[in-house]
Design a protein around this nucleic acid. Structure first.
Lengths: 236, 236
DNA sequence: CAGTATGCTAAACCGTTGTTCAACCGGGGT
DNA sequence: ACCCCGGTTGAACAACGGTTTAGCATACTG
């Protein structure tokens, strides 16, 4: 995956400076809004040099993807955290100032559905699934009919705290584009409560859902009217 | 909020056609990638006419925001569904072909953090919070220490099924940018299970979280190291 | 030392795109 | 019939931005 030049010492040169500047700009403005001249200015070089080193803006994005992804995955491996959610949140909170850029970059990548975004999401879902299965096995977590889907659900919930950080913050009365530590702290207890006791006090919703799913399983064309009733019942 | 011209009959003219075409393009390509000439072509008019009617691309976006938001909120009011999550999902599944564009448009608006996006999110969070409070009151739902934060959590989870639809689908083995009915169906039961029984089999995580929050409450500067330990403990 | 590769810049190129402008056209009022 | 006015167009304008190119300096090589 690494595509760096031969020597790791030579990596601290213009090419690396451009790449780091690009990561900042892509994270802050998104891929399309970010422009090469601004990136070059941040890196202290000319626009032409960016192309000279990376070939094109798209290739530059790939190099950034590669770099951020490698860095984050390496850190995740180092800490050897069992749960994807925990791993992400840990990196986020360990040193907000240092990792904010990478977090923002990956949030953008996920929101814009870039290759790097797909990779992180898949990695986190896989790891979360493993945790869910292990938890069910050792009894620390409930057994689910579809661990994969549960992993997806949990992953999306935690990722949404980053991709929709501004919405979360605003809904809680904070402002600023990133999720402040105070906002994160406020979400911690409710998450634990929800993941411990659930939302519903009894299992009526669950029973209605299973019934509806079983009833409409293959008896109707797989995409039209019964879905509506199912969800209506399941969430009322 | 409505800014339509006086007569609803005259609304079916070029101005409306442009607006509808713009909604499609903004939904499919995002605001920045969408361009006026393509929008004009879809509407069957010239690029100049778009400016003549709306003044600028930004103003056109506002008009689209206005239109989609009004349409969706009106429909939500009609159905009078108690729960924001349910209301959104219902519209989504009632007739995917018809509402897909509006759903996509709002997903974009939320992901790109546009004014319209903020408005829908806030509306859904508010309504969800009301449902959570009512549920706790009538005993159908568990009581939470922070209903607002729970509402945010639930809202983000359901919204992530739209803003990150491609990731959800891919993680489940489907493809395509939108969440297929089959994928939605597969998520239904796990959601019900998670919201009924929770994720954890006992309350150790919850207790650890409350302890950690209480312990670090005001004893340390509000944004640095203890947060890390808190989350590490809470999710391991 | 000559020559050649390498890192780099400045300027130009050129397609895209939001916006402006002058003209046109059909219809209603005088 | 004339005028005028709103809707509409096509061309032109101007800015932006990715990419190309020519050139320059420095360093390494024969």
């Amino acid at each position: 995956m690494r595509t760096e030049p031969r020597s790791p010492i030579a990596d601290l040169n213009a090419r690396a400076k451009i790449r780091d500047a690009a990561v900042v700009h892509f994270a802050r403005d998104g891929f399309r809004k970010a422009n090469l001249r601004a990136i070059a200015a941040t890196a202290g070089v000319s626009a032409g040099l960016v192309i000279h080193h990376f070939g094109s803006k798209d290739a530059l994005r790939l190099a950034c993807d590669d770099h951020v992804l490698g860095s984050v995955l390496a850190r995740a491996r180092d800490k050897a955290t069992p749960e994807g959610l925990a791993s992400v949140l840990q990196n986020y909170l360990a040193d907000p100032a240092e990792f904010q850029v990478q977090i923002d970059y990956l949030s953008r990548a996920i929101a814009e559905d870039s290759p790097a975004g797909r990779q992180v999401v898949d990695a986190i879902v896989d790891e979360t699934e493993a945790v869910v299965r292990a938890g069910a096995f050792d009894g620390s977590m409930n057994a689910f009919s579809d661990p994969r889907a549960v992993a997806v659900l949990i992953t999306m919930t935690s990722l949404s705290m980053m991709t929709m950080a501004s919405h979360v913050g605003r809904a809680l009365g904070f402002d600023g584009p990133n999720l402040s530590p105070a906002a994160m702290r406020r979400m911690a207890l409710p998450s634990a409560e929800l993941y411990t006791h659930g939302l519903y006090a009894d299992d009526t919703v669950l029973r209605v859902t299973t019934d509806a799913l079983a009833g409409s399983d293959a008896t109707t064309p797989p995409n039209h009217p019964t879905q509506t009733q199912l969800i209506r019942k399941a969430t009322t």
